[in-house]
Every structure is written in C-alpha cells, then in structure tokens.
C-alpha cells in the first residue's frame, strides 16, 4: 500500500494476519471463497474430496488478513480463518 506520509503510529498499527482452516469433506467446490477473497489467498485445488468436489487450497498464506469473508460467504461451513497469534500462542503454550 502506498502512503502519502508515514502515519505517526505506523510502528503501532499492525495488519492482522490470519490462518485459514478448511474442512475438506464439507466443501462442494462452489469457489465463492476463492473468487471473493480480497487478497487472493486461495485457489481451487486440483485434488478433490471424497464426494468429488475440488476444494480450495491456500497459495499465499502470508497475505491473509483474517477478514473472515471466506468464512461468511461459504455456504457449506467448510472454511474459516482465525488470527495468527492464536496459533502462535497455542504453540508457545505447548512448548512451555
């Protein structure tokens, strides 16, 4: 993103990052999530699930901004995202 000037709080503002989770066997391959993800994080996989539907796959994990659009538009309750920190803290807890 281009900015006219560096915002005074630029060091404090953090773009959220999300981790995408997929329930492969629920997906019916509609591609709504792939089409409407604002960051083009997803593509339709070449692989298919047990029912023969091509499910989505993450190609640019780092770009996900945890906006939850994929979660809300999915008619199958098959995809969601949650904040990256949630996973890293869970891991730290496990390691501790």
């Amino acid at each position: 993103m281009k900015l006219w000037r560096t915002p005074l709080d630029a060091d404090k503002v953090r773009v959220p990052h999300g981790v995408v989770s997929i329930i492969i066997e629920r997906c019916k391959g509609c591609s709504f999530c792939v089409e409407y993800c604002p960051r083009d994080v997803l593509i339709i996989s070449k692989k298919f699930n047990k029912k023969g539907y091509h499910y989505p796959e993450v190609i640019s994990a780092g770009l996900c901004v945890d906006c939850n659009l994929c979660e809300d538009i999915c008619p199958e309750f098959a995809i969601y995202s949650d904040p990256e920190e949630q996973h890293s803290t869970a891991q730290t807890k496990e390691n501790a």
Binding site: V20, S21, I22, I23, I24, V58
Partner: peptide, 12 residues
C-alpha cells in the same frame, strides 16, 4: 500450502 485441515468449524 499454509492451510490447516480440520474437522470442526467455529459456527458448529
């Protein structure tokens, strides 16, 4: 690939 494959959804 970066996605997690899971069995449950938060809306469940």
């Amino acid at each position: 690939t970066g996605e997690r494959q899971v069995q449950h959804h938060p809306k469940d």
